[in-house]
Simulated scan of single mutants.
Amino acid sequence: MPIIAAMLNVDALQTLKPLNTAADEEVATEVPVALTVNGISQAVMLATPADLEEFALGFGLAEGWFTSRRDLLDIEVQPQPQGLELALTVTAACDQRLKARRRTLAGRTGCGLCGVDSLAELAAVRPQPVLPPRLAGDALDRALAALPAAQVLNARCGGLHGAAWCQADGELLLAREDIGRHNALDKLTGALARRDADTRGGFVLMSSRASYELVHKTAMAGIGLLACMSAPSSLAIATARGLGLELWAFVRAGRATRYA
């Protein structure tokens, strides 16, 4: 499922000249990304155009579109006047599931439950309870210290969230970035799914606050612990407790607060 960057003519960062200075600066790119499945529109998100194949896979798994990465047969990136289209080809069984449960999202980088039509739909995709890993005593500190170096794009321009996959001892193995925290996590879980990674023994570290969506996406990926650098919401805490997912927030050097 190759993606050829030259086809896109869109980079993850753009060089612009601010109005009050003569110096050029790099800023994060934000473009509408439409996801279609077998020709039918399913979602439109605002995202940074990098790691799009992993984003599509991770998003589809989190939304319950796919039961595994093997449901996704192909991705074609199609530039459009307004943004980019990710044209997904899926198995016949997956296509039938989606037709039975059609959902259209209007995504935003800071969105909550965008496009959910009813409260019943909110509970339609329910993660299985997950078992948290047993962390080493300094695991969160070690992962936190490694995150800045893993956020290559953010180091150049700022404004990008990071999602990192870490071992139980805190070693950071993989990271993805996006202007939207949800997208960054989708890219990370998509990358893990492509690698058939065993997600039971590690945890996710996010540079953002802990929202319900991040808890849900983490659990859907079979990961038992989410750590975030900023505050949690009440729904994130309640969801994590209901799923048995371990939730840490306000992760700083030398301190962290456990909420679930």
Score class of each variant (00 low, 15 high):
108 R>N: 10
109 T>E: 00
110 G>N: 02
111 C>D: 14
111 C>H: 03
112 G>N: 13
112 G>S: 13
116 V>Y: 14
116 V>M: 14
118 S>E: 11
119 L>M: 09
120 A>N: 12
120 A>F: 05
121 E>L: 03
122 L>I: 15
123 A>W: 13
123 A>E: 15
124 A>H: 02
125 V>Y: 04
126 R>W: 12
127 P>F: 11
128 Q>C: 00
129 P>F: 07
129 P>W: 05
130 V>G: 08
132 P>W: 10
132 P>N: 09
133 P>N: 12
135 L>R: 12
138 D>T: 10
138 D>I: 04
139 A>H: 06
140 L>C: 05
141 D>T: 05
144 L>Q: 11
144 L>I: 05
145 A>Q: 12
145 A>R: 03
146 A>R: 07
146 A>T: 02
146 A>I: 01
147 L>I: 10
147 L>F: 10
148 P>K: 05
149 A>I: 00
150 A>I: 01
150 A>G: 09
153 L>P: 00
153 L>H: 08
153 L>K: 01
154 N>V: 02
154 N>F: 02
155 A>E: 14
155 A>V: 00
157 C>G: 04
158 G>M: 07
159 G>Y: 05
159 G>D: 11
160 L>M: 14
161 H>P: 05
162 G>Q: 04
163 A>C: 08
167 Q>R: 08
167 Q>P: 00
168 A>P: 00
168 A>V: 03
169 D>R: 01
169 D>V: 00
170 G>R: 03
171 E>P: 01
171 E>G: 13
172 L>Y: 05
173 L>T: 05
173 L>H: 09
175 A>N: 07
176 R>V: 01
177 E>T: 02
178 D>A: 13
179 I>A: 15
179 I>W: 03
180 G>M: 04
181 R>C: 15
182 H>R: 02
182 H>K: 03
182 H>G: 09
184 A>F: 06
184 A>L: 06
185 L>Q: 08
186 D>I: 06
187 K>Y: 02
190 G>S: 05
190 G>N: 10
191 A>E: 06
192 L>V: 04
192 L>N: 10
193 A>C: 02
193 A>H: 04
194 R>S: 10
194 R>V: 02
197 A>L: 00
198 D>S: 12
199 T>S: 12
200 R>Q: 12
200 R>N: 05
200 R>W: 07
200 R>K: 12
200 R>M: 07
201 G>F: 10
202 G>L: 10
202 G>H: 09
203 F>Q: 07
204 V>M: 09
205 L>A: 10
205 L>Q: 09
206 M>P: 00
206 M>W: 03
207 S>M: 04
210 A>C: 11
211 S>H: 14
212 Y>D: 06
213 E>P: 03
214 L>R: 08
214 L>A: 05
214 L>W: 03
215 V>K: 06
215 V>Q: 07
216 H>N: 04
217 K>Q: 13
217 K>W: 07
217 K>I: 12
218 T>N: 06
218 T>K: 02
218 T>D: 04
222 G>V: 01
